[in-house]
Design a protein around this nucleic acid. Sequence first.
RNA 1: GGAGACGUCGCAUAGUUCGGCCUAGUGCACCACCCUGCUAAGGUGGAGAGGGGUUUAAACUCCUCCGUGGGUUCAAAUCCCACCGUCUCCGCCA
Length: 421
Amino acid sequence: MIDPQLLRDDPEAVRRSQESRGASVDIVDKAIAADGARRASIGEFESLRAEQNAFGKTVAAAPKEQKQALVAEAQQLAARVKAAQQVAQDAETEFTAIAGSIANVVIDDVPAGGEDNFVTLREVGAKATFDFEPRDHAELGELLGAIDIARGVKVSGSRFYFLKGVGARLELALMNLALDKALAEGFIPLITPTLVRPEIMAGTGFLGEHSDEIYYLPADDLYLTGTSEVALAGYHSDEILDLSAGPLRYAGWSTCYRREAGSAGKDNRGILRVHQFNKLEMFTYVLPEQAQEEHERLVGWQESMLQACGLSYRVIDVAAGDLGSSAARKFDIEAWVPTQGTYRELTSTSNCTTYQARRLDIRYRTESGKTTPVATLNGTLATTRWLVAILETHQQADGSVVVPDALRPYLGGLELFEPQS
RNA sequence: GGAGACGUCGCAUAGUUCGGCCUAGUGCACCACCCUGCUAAGGUGGAGAGGGGUUUAAACUCCUCCGUGGGUUCAAAUCCCACCGUCUCCGCCA
C-alpha cells in the first residue's frame, strides 16, 4: 500500500513512478477521487453516529412515560446511521482496492522500462576460461555423484532432484558459510515456517501478480512460501518496533517452493530452475531514511559471499517495469555461468521502503511519539542455485571440481570433489 | 479426532449473572514532577491503537477498537451465530 498522504500531497510523484513502470497512470487520479469520497462519507457517518450516541443517553435517562416516544425517534436515527455507515464502508473498500493496486513508488534514479532496460553497475572477477570443453553443472553433478536428477523426477516429477554426497554437503556448506557471514554482521538467525496463512501471503504482496507461482493447499487454506521473505516480513506484522538501537536484521533459512508456471521449456536442464530449493535470506527492518544505505549494505554482503565462492559476477540495477509491486528498487547479482556464456541471477535484493510495512502494519515510534511505518528490505545470501556457478566455474579437465577456500572449513577440509569411478 | 475452559487498553486482572450509571475500573510496570539528606517507600499528574475534522505545528474535537467477522437492539465487553487462537484432559500418530 502506498502512502495515502503522498497521494494527496504529491500525486505527480506517484504518476511518474507508474509511468516508469509502464503501469497505469490513470489509476492515480481514480485513487485520489476515491480518497476524497471516502473521507467525505466518513465525516457524514461520524457526525450522525455522534448524534446517535448523544441521543442514546437521553433515552437511557428519560422517565418511563417518555421512553416510548424517544425510542421511536431513535429508531429513525438508527436507520440513517446504518445507511451512512454502509456508504462509508463501501467507500473505504473502494479506496483500498484502488490504492492497493498502485505499485510502490520507484526511487528516482531507477532505470525506467522493462526487463531489458537494466543498468549494469559493475562487473567483478575474471570470467573462468578453460583449455578444455567445460561440462555443465548437470553433467558434473552426475560425474561427482552430487546431483541426481533422474531419481528426483522419478519421485516427484520434473524440476525436482536429489542432492547427494558432496552435492548435499556443498549445499549445507554454502548455507553455513552464509549463516556465519550473517551472524558476523549481527543478523539473528531464524528457521521459518514455509506454510503461511492467506493474510500474510497477501500482506507481503505475493498474492497479486505472482499468485500462479504459488503452491496452495486448499484443505488447510495455507500457502507454501517461495521465499522465507514471506515469513520474515510477517514475523513482526501488527507490531510497533523499537529501532533505536539500529536496524533489526534477520537471516531466515528455509526451503522455498515455486510452481514455475509459465516457464515450461525454460531452463529444463539441471537445477537452475526448480520447484524446491533452499535459501538463506536476509531481511531487515530499518528507519525509512536509512533504507537506501541499508540496501547498499545488503548488496555489499551479497558480493562478499560471491567473492568468497570465487565467482565472476555483475551487479545490475533492475528497471522499474521489472520490479515487483512492493519494491522501490532492486539490485540483482548475476554470476557468470561458463557453459551458458551468460550471467544468471544468483541473488536479488529489494528495498520495499514503507510499502510492505504499511500493508503488514509494522511501525516504529517517532520522536514525537507517533507511530509510522518502518522500511523493509530483503536480499539473498545463498541459494541452491549457487551450486550451478560454483561447480561450473571451478571444474577441471578430468571432471573434478576445486573447492573454493572459504567453503573448505565447512566440508571438513575437503579441497577437491572427484569423479566417482 | 473427542470433551471442557478461556480470549478485556504493555503485563496481570475486574466487569459478562440481569444490555443503558463502562467515557472499560484496579494492581504492577512506565514517564514527568513533588517529598523524604542514598536506596526503598510515599504524593500528584500523565500515559493505548487506528481514523476523520481543524491546524504551519501544538492544542482541540469527533468516530472506531474488549480475539476476528456477522447478527439482534433505540442502545452490546455484556445476548445470538460462525470462525480463529490458547490452555487442560482423553484418543491416535510420528
